[in-house]
């Protein structure tokens, strides 16, 4: 694979051998390449965690924000330049834990961004604590008797908040993950792609084999515009569905609600006469 998003030299990648992140990186790069996004129209955003390293390995402009804060930073980027394709990439701990409140309110605000969440159900960067999506009973060096919290259900939260696009992928299936990411990026509005990701070092429960046995793909019979059905899918926990759960194109995006962009789509910084106009107004 050679694309404009590849670095010319070999990049030293700081993930464990066998990490699910490698496949997500590959799928993401393939997706943005096939979508023909111009390099000067793409900004990647992330927070902190193993997943948040992903944009470092893509030859694109990248804002690495604070832990949990990728979505507010992405919203800020979109607010000042709606022409950009903005992809926020982070993990389950960053997005659903530390950034949980931002997750909720970014969905409500509905900026036209894509939010890719590597969901490995564990904190990898800090070496193996339970994350918001860890299953009950999951034992770690910190959850010594096992997790007793109800796992966070990002799909149900996103559907309940009437998110614009809600999908789930599985890291090891690069082709399908790529296709889902492409649809998410093309969707107008906030698009969530929660990607099941095996963590070979710290999650010995949710392994490649586990995902194989505990997931299935939605077929063409599923109508992604049916919110109630989507909610049912979100609650399925016998085997977890993969694919596009829900699409809602009825709400305006955040940018479309901004008066600044109502008659003029140009980013504010490109409007050269704005200073003059302000001066005229003040005079």
């Amino acid at each position: 694979m050679n694309s404009v998003f590849d670095f010319k030299d070999t990049v030293d990648i700081a993930w464990c051998p066998g990490c699910g992140n490698f496949s997500i990186l590959k799928a993401l790069k393939l997706a943005i390449n096939e979508l023909n996004i111009a390099q000067d129209k793409l900004v990647m955003v992330s927070g902190i965690g193993q997943a948040a390293k992903t944009p470092q390995y893509i030859r694109a402009n990248f804002f690495n924000g604070l832990h949990g804060r990728s979505l507010p930073a992405a919203t800020g980027i979109k607010a000042s330049n709606p022409e950009l394709t903005v992809i926020a990439v982070s993990g389950d701990g960053c997005t659903y834990g530390e950034g949980g409140n931002h997750f909720i309110h970014t969905i409500r605000r509905n900026p036209d961004i894509t939010n890719i969440v590597h969901n490995n159900m564990v904190y990898g960067l800090t070496k193996g604590q339970a994350s918001p999506t860890s299953e009950r009973g999951f034992k770690t060096p910190v959850q010594v008797t096992g997790v007793y919290l109800e796992p966070f259900n990002p799909m149900a939260v996103a559907v309940s908040l009437n998110a614009s696009f809600v999908a789930r992928a599985y890291a090891a299936d690069i082709e399908q993950t790529k296709e889902i990411i492409k649809k998410a990026v093309n969707n107008r509005g906030y698009s969530l792609v929660d990607i099941f990701q095996p963590c070979v070092s710290f999650n010995k429960i949710n392994t490649y084999q586990w995902y194989k046995e505990n997931t299935y793909y939605l077929d063409n019979n599923h109508d992604p515009y049916d919110r109630e059905k989507a909610m049912h899918l979100a609650f399925e926990n016998n085997r977890f569905p993969l694919g596009i759960f829900y699409i809602n194109n009825t709400n305006k995006t955040f940018e479309e609600n901004l008066p600044a962009y109502k008659d003029n789509k140009l980013p504010l910084f490109q409007r050269s006469n704005i200073r003059k106009k302000i001066k005229e107004f003040l005079d």
Partner: peptide, 19 residues
Amino acid sequence: GYPITPQNELGEYMSEHLP
């Protein structure tokens, strides 16, 4: 507490010994 390097071992110690 919440995990962050380089102090995670303190949380680990507390999780085992405080209960």
